[in-house]
Design a protein around this nucleic acid. Structure first.
Lengths: 246, 246
DNA sequence: CGCGGGCTTGACTCACTTCAAGTTGTGTGG
DNA sequence: CCACACAACTTGAAGTGAGTCAAGCCCGCG
């Protein structure tokens, strides 16, 4: 059996013990294929299950306000869906597949076991949740302060970075399974304006749209333009507890 | 010695064991008074310390973009500062005191011990961090979708709710230690517009400004107007591990 | 071949910003 | 007790970034 993306991703940060690998294996046993657009979690439903997103992309979308909603978070393959939403008994947001994919549902009780038995792996997941939290804060700052154009550029750079860290991309061309209306939902503007800005950036030679891909022709320039900072690579583990002996 | 606000707050959710109380007591031993405006954490500094905010309010502010910055989070007394920012080795944001107060610094290593020795308390803190995450998502949705007026109302309702949950407020009047420019930073608009909207809401009899307090004259009406949802009260503990025997 | 979703483009509108000029309140030193 | 400095608040007028509306285009697909 090939190693799961989740194990691969966590393994980047620390050499996992057998007990830790075994736990991760157990939560990925049940596979459930889902098609593009299908619901993973419905808002208000009982949140006793969490998911590993084994294949495909998933998105968290807000409730609509005056007919529009926004994309609050994008889950990439190999991530755990619902880590940040598991506190309430009712799911706070609806989560849909954005592409075809496979999810592995497991019970939230497993997370209790995780905290009880595998403190080091718990710390790793807490750390990753913290990085997501920081990313959300950056997004809030972007929505409050940046122009639409800079927000759009930030969105592209951030997505490329996350894909690169997940090893799904190496150069400056990456998969972007969103239409312009959805990009607008993710960066807080209308599809009409997304179109005008994508066009403008293309004319300036900064990007190239190669549906369903996106190519950044001058990534360093774009990063400098908006003061982009990589928030995902710095995960300090010095405070983690030692993995418990088997 | 009177019970700390942190213990009181966590105790609302679960009866704490002696070992858990003892841990919380240990991280609150060192007290450091700080005046309004003083820095708790400087962006980029080594993030090996975390803080309990024993008294006073603290705010996380973004880096300025084109001369403006925004307030990303408000910490109320009894909260842990830095739980969401502890993953990176360098502090991602600057945190200042917004009022006079007292913080209790402790080493991040203590969190490692916490995860190793007190799984149930760890789960509780993970749950609270998850609620904060959900609040950030809501804030993003608000910034992307709501009008300035609705964002302002949401800000007031949210703050009142959090103060009420912390037992610092019972009715519809609460402490608001922000000037109009700072309110603007928190809700993503200029101080000029904050002023016009506060004035408008006052004329409509919805709020009353009683510096440094704010009174909501028709909370139910305001909540209905913006579809306000309490995201802080629902914390499911069914999946928590049992506290370890002493 | 025709339907429909997604993209493109221009004209118009408006929520919010910017700029600028007060007013009010308040702490402080003389 | 006054004066005067200074920050916060207030108000109006003018400007603009982005939204809205509407029409047309492209193109894959049944």
């Amino acid at each position: 059996m090939t190693e799961s993306r989740l194990v691969g991703r966590l393994g980047c940060y620390a050499a996992l013990t057998d007990a830790e690998k075994s736990f991760l294996g157990r939560i990925e046993v049940q596979e459930k294929p889902l098609g593009n657009g299908q619901t993973v979690v419905r808002r208000g439903s009982n949140a006793h299950r969490v998911f590993v997103l084994k294949e495909g992309w998933a998105i968290i979308r807000s409730e609509p306000v005056r007919g529009r909603s926004s994309i609050l978070w994008i889950h990439l393959p190999g991530e755990v869906i619902g880590l940040g939403d598991m506190a309430p008994s009712a799911a706070p947001h609806t989560i849909h597949m954005q592409t075809d994919g496979v999810v592995c549902p497991f019970s939230r009780d497993s997370l209790g076991e995780l905290l009880r038995d595998l403190p080091r792996l718990s710390a790793l997941l807490v750390g990753l949740a913290s990085l997501d939290q920081i990313a959300m804060r950056d997004h809030c700052a972007a929505l409050g302060l940046m122009t639409a154009e800079d927000r759009l550029v930030r969105f592209l750079l951030q997505l490329r970075l996350r894909l690169a860290l997940a090893d799904s991309v190496s150069g400056d061309r990456f998969h972007l399974p969103f239409n312009q209306a959805e990009i607008g939902e993710a960066v807080g503007m209308t599809s009409v304006y997304v179109n005008k800005l994508l066009r403008k950036l293309s004319e300036q030679g900064l990007i190239r749209v190669e549906k369903p891909y996106m190519r950044l022709l001058d990534r360093a320039g774009l990063e400098a333009k908006i003061g982009f900072v990589d928030r995902f690579s710095d995960l300090d583990q010095s405070w983690f507890p030692n993995p418990r002996a088997a």
